Each structure stands twice: as C-alpha cells, then as structure tokens.
Simulated scan of single mutants.
Amino acid sequence: METVPSSRYVILLRVSTQKQGADGLGIAAQKRDIKLFLQQRPEATVIKELVEVESGGKELKDRPVLQEAMELCKSTSSTLLVATLSRLSRDAAFVLTLMKDTSIRFQVASMPNAENFQLGIYALLNQQEREQVSIRTRAALAAAKARGVKLGNPNLAEMNRNRKNQARVFADQHCNLIWTLRNGGKTLREICGVMNDSGIKTSKGGVFHPVQITRILRRSPNPAELAA
C-alpha cells in the first residue's frame, strides 16, 4: 500500500437521516471521539470535515459525500478518518471493497492502531456477531412463545402515555424561556449553556444538550407565531 502521511486527515461524519443531521444527533458523539483521537496527535492537520446524511447500507456510487472525501484524500495525500467503523458502513462487503483501494489510508478513531487490512477483518467479525445475536434473539423469543410466555409488557401503553404526559408538563414549564432565547437568535448549544448555568435540570435530573432543547421546542408552540 502506498505510504500516506498520518498527519493529514479528511474527517467524515455520517448520520442516517435528515432529522439526525439537523438536530446533531450522533454528530456530537462522533466529533467527541475524533477530537480525542486528534488530541493525541498534536501534529495532525485537518484538511476538511464532511458530513454525510446517507444510509450506511448504500453502494459507493450512491454516496457522493464519501466519494468526495475519498477523492480529497487522494489529491491531498490524506487519511480518511471516521469515529467508528460503522460510520463507513455496517456492511462488511462494502468495507472490504473500500479497503481494496490501496491509494487511501482509512483510520477509525475508536481503533487508532488498526490498518486497512485489520479494519476489513473487524468489519467481518462485527457483521457475524450482529447476525448471531439476531439468530439467538429470534430463537429465544420463539422458545418463550412456545412455552406460553406472553411477550411484551402489558403495561407498556400506559407507561408510554405517562412518559409523554410527563414530557409535556416539563416542556410547558420551560418552553417560554427557551422560545424567548431561540427567538432572540440563540443557538441550541447557547440555550443549553443558559439552562445549565441557571441550575435548571432536565426531566431526568441531568444537564441540557441540544437534543433536549429540540424536543421541548417541538412539543411547544412558538409564542411569536401564535401572536402573529
């Protein structure tokens, strides 16, 4: 394989849906892992960071952002860096196909010492484990059903209703402040800062992240729109 300098990186972040891309769901965790990886390499230079909103099950021809990242790696002699192997793809055959391109070095932040060949092996092992877990789960459920065990929680519907009601009450308590900040031009992360600095806790007693703010905004109407 052609030697590729390890100090130059093209970062690829991938989420599966537009909703995840808009809300930052999954992106924050990927950025955190990649940041930790780069902190161990002070000489590292990030050439570009690309965000892909595509299913990991698609073929390369249907993933233009991944193609762009790979071409950029070739033209700048950079390494393609992802947070986890699943951000490339959950399909082992797809990953193995990528690894055949010897002009590109792939690196995974969660497996910093793995080379292309090893990543291909890990992809095969991960897929095999997922398939075995699925088989074991179906067999266990079938056996339980044969013994007359009633599957599922009979109180699940009531529990879901209670959770939704609690979420609605919590949203109603804080929506005026959050919408005021949002209408004032604050970003989701800035709103989190205000809430956390004020000592306000989430419904589960934790600190606020953008995903919680987004949920509250969705559950409560915008006062500015109602007044219009």
Rank of each mutant, 00 (worst) to 15 (best):
G26C: 00
N116F: 05
G206T: 15
A83Q: 02
A83P: 01
L125N: 13
V133E: 02
V108A: 02
A93F: 11
L151Y: 08
S7L: 09
L98A: 04
W179D: 06
E225A: 11
S103F: 06
I200K: 00
I216F: 04
P210T: 07
S203L: 14
N153S: 13
G120P: 03
L141D: 06
L151C: 08
D91F: 09
L98F: 00
V133D: 12
R163W: 04
S89P: 07
T102P: 04
E43L: 03
A146C: 03
P154Q: 01
C73Y: 07
D62K: 15
E129Y: 02
D101F: 08
I121D: 08
I135M: 15
A142G: 02
G152H: 10
E190G: 09
L12P: 05
A140L: 11
K61S: 14
A142N: 12
G148V: 01
S103H: 05
S75I: 14
P112Y: 00
V211S: 14
L38I: 05
K35G: 01
L226H: 08
G24S: 04
P221W: 05
V10H: 00
S198M: 12
A83N: 06
N155M: 14
D172C: 09
N183G: 10
K58Y: 05
E158V: 14
E158C: 08
E190K: 00
G184H: 08
N113R: 13
P5T: 11
E68S: 13
Q118T: 15
R138T: 10
Q127C: 04
R189H: 06
A144N: 12
Q212C: 05
Q173Y: 10
A69T: 05
N160H: 15
A142T: 11
N153I: 07
L181M: 06
V194S: 03
S86H: 14
M159E: 14
H209G: 02
G199D: 00
H209E: 09
A28I: 03
P42M: 00
S198Q: 15
V82M: 07
P210F: 07
K35Y: 06
A69Y: 02
D101S: 04
L25H: 11
W179L: 00
Q128M: 12
I216K: 11
V15D: 00
S103N: 10
Q173W: 03
G56I: 03
L156D: 03
G56R: 10
R168D: 13
G148Q: 13
L50Y: 00
V211T: 08
S220T: 15
P221Q: 11
V4G: 07
P221F: 04
G199V: 06
A44P: 05
Q20E: 12
A69G: 05
N116S: 05
K201D: 00
I178A: 01
L141W: 05
E158D: 14
I104P: 02
G56L: 08
S220D: 05
R138C: 09
V82P: 09
R87E: 01
P223H: 08
A140E: 09
F117G: 03
L81W: 01
K164T: 13
A44L: 06
